[in-house]
Design a protein around this nucleic acid. Sequence first.
DNA 1: CAGTATCCTATGGGATACTG
DNA 2: CAGTATCCCATAGGATACTG
Lengths: 102, 102
Amino acid sequence: MQMIQGKWKIMIMFKLNEPGQHRFGELERHIQDVSHKTLTNQLRQLEDDGLIARHDFQTAEPHVEYELTDNGKSIMPVLDAICDWGDTHVDPKLIDRSLCDE
Amino acid sequence: MQMIQGKWKIMIMFKLNEPGQHRFGELERHIQDVSHKTLTNQLRQLEDDGLIARHDFQTAEPHVEYELTDNGKSIMPVLDAICDWGDTHVDPKLIDRSLCDE
DNA sequence: CAGTATCCTATGGGATACTG
DNA sequence: CAGTATCCCATAGGATACTG
């Protein structure tokens, strides 16, 4: 639980689970309401917990990409199950869908 | 996530999922390290979220029992999945098994 | 027995500004 | 662009004592 609790961690994981490269700025734009500091914090925690990997392209223009590790991929079905349960058992009025994709 | 995050909620749910009646004092004894106040808090939150039900036997000797609601039962497979993932993917050295049953 | 009240600390997360 | 630093606030949870 400690590894996945955090206001934005599930959203980060779902985003990273989508195909393609994922850069810091992209995540920040995609997850509208997260603060800059909190995003870096949660990314760092996920990284420390081995769920995601960070690739720093040591170029002049800072360029960092994140991706799921195998361990991170293995937890996605669990996160799916959490979201599915929420969709089917939680009163829609209580859910802030603005935090989600659709 | 908000409904299941809370230091002891998963343990409470698993305990209530076991057959038999479950009283406050029993939970308090079973979950060794939880503080009295925190246990009541988490029970109240689970109750407010509709995952458990509280039965107050209005007797001279206070007697309260808790049980899972249908909604609460429906989330147990998800909690199982979380625990199974933890058992198979998290370094055992990082897990405090003293918080668990066996 | 079950619950409440009070006090305390640690942590999470937001806002903002600054750095290379 | 990506990250750090600082300040601030709300909440979680523990310790303890009190109530019916």
